[in-house]
């Protein structure tokens, strides 16, 4: 893997000023004369380095600062403090040479023309990114084949399913072969099958084309399947930056053992620390169970633990 650093931030900070209105009409009148503002730190001193070809997951609860961080990395908003370097540029300078090297897909914002076909949108992007005709045709064919949407390229976007539309969003984003792909909740609202397909394609793009991918998602399945490295953000601060498996290994502490018996109590469920599984199994076997299953901690519980304990350790 190429280890060239392409994203580097140091103490990156973004604060917003928000007006605090006191309750009721009196508060409104006071607000007209004298306003009180509070500083909201959306991203707090985040230092981050991403090397070319990496697939990095960015997780955190709602309002943690993930999207704000992505917006600063893509130049949409300017940071309040710290330093930032993406592909050798200060993103908020919004240089075209910089914008040609990355793509961003936001799960809740579409860049497709709803009333037209995907091919129509692609034509516009071909001109915007100055892609030569032959390269454009090759890329379009490659991605339509990869995503299995060849038959849908001439269909009105409005009539596509959510999963198909997300595949099209990815094709539009990848058309100019970006070096970095920022994905903000790409699987939001998708069913299990569509999410799985999207994950498969993203893995291929990262692996085959060497595209660096920074992914934010609330679905831990996305992060576990795709990202070798995970960054956890909570209340704007980075609370973990390291291997994804290591992260889950650290916080996935318990195993849930379910035993089924022929006689009462018929079914017994126990949750034990990972290291005590052998002892627990040994004890259960004495009751001659009909069946035994061992499951990991529920993902939701693990995530909650990551956010809660990560925050405490960071403090």
């Amino acid at each position: 893997m190429n280890t060239q650093k392409i994203i580097e931030t140091k103490d990156l900070t973004k604060t917003y000023r928000r007006f605090q209105k006191k309750e009721g009409l009196r508060g409104s009148i006071q607000g007209l004369i004298k306003r009180e503002y509070e500083e909201k730190t959306a991203v707090n001193s985040v230092s981050l380095t991403v090397s070319e070809g990496e697939f990095v997951g960015l997780i955190g609860p709602n309002g943690a600062g993930k999207t704000t961080l992505i917006k600063m990395l893509t130049g949409i908003i300017a940071p309040t403090g710290g330093s930032i370097d993406v592909l050798g540029y200060y993103p908020n300078d919004l240089k075209n040479a910089f914008k040609k090297q990355y793509a961003v897909v936001m799960g809740q914002k579409s860049q497709l023309f709803m009333e037209l076909t995907v091919n129509d949108t692609l034509r516009l992007f071909k001109e915007i990114y100055e892609i030569p005709e032959a390269d454009y045709r090759d890329s379009r064919e490659y991605f339509a084949e990869l995503f299995g949407v060849k038959d849908l390229m001439n269909v009105q976007v409005r009539t596509l399913s959510l999963g198909e539309r997300m595949k099209m969003e990815l094709i539009v984003a990848l058309l100019h072969s970006p070096r970095v792909l920022f994905l903000d909740e790409p699987t939001i609202g998708l069913d299990a099958v569509a999410s799985k397909q999207i994950r498969k394609f993203l893995k291929e793009i990262n692996h085959d084309r060497g595209t660096t991918i920074l992914l934010t998602s609330h679905y831990m399945e996305d992060i576990r399947t795709l990202c070798d490295r995970t960054v956890v953000i909570n209340h704007g601060s980075k609370i973990y930056d390291g291997g994804t498996e290591e992260l889950f290994g650290r916080y996935q502490r318990n195993k849930r053992i379910t035993a089924v018996f022929d006689r009462p109590p018929y079914r017994r469920e126990v949750e034990v620390p990972k290291e005590q599984v052998n002892d627990a199994l040994h004890e259960l076997m004495q009751y001659e169970p009909k069946d035994i299953t061992i499951a990991e901690d529920e993902i939701g519980v693990v995530v909650e633990r990551i956010y809660r304990e990560g925050e405490q350790q960071n403090a």
Partner: peptide, 12 residues
Amino acid sequence: SGEMDLYLTKPV
């Protein structure tokens, strides 16, 4: 609506 994001990230 924040839709401006998509315009700012394109090289035009």
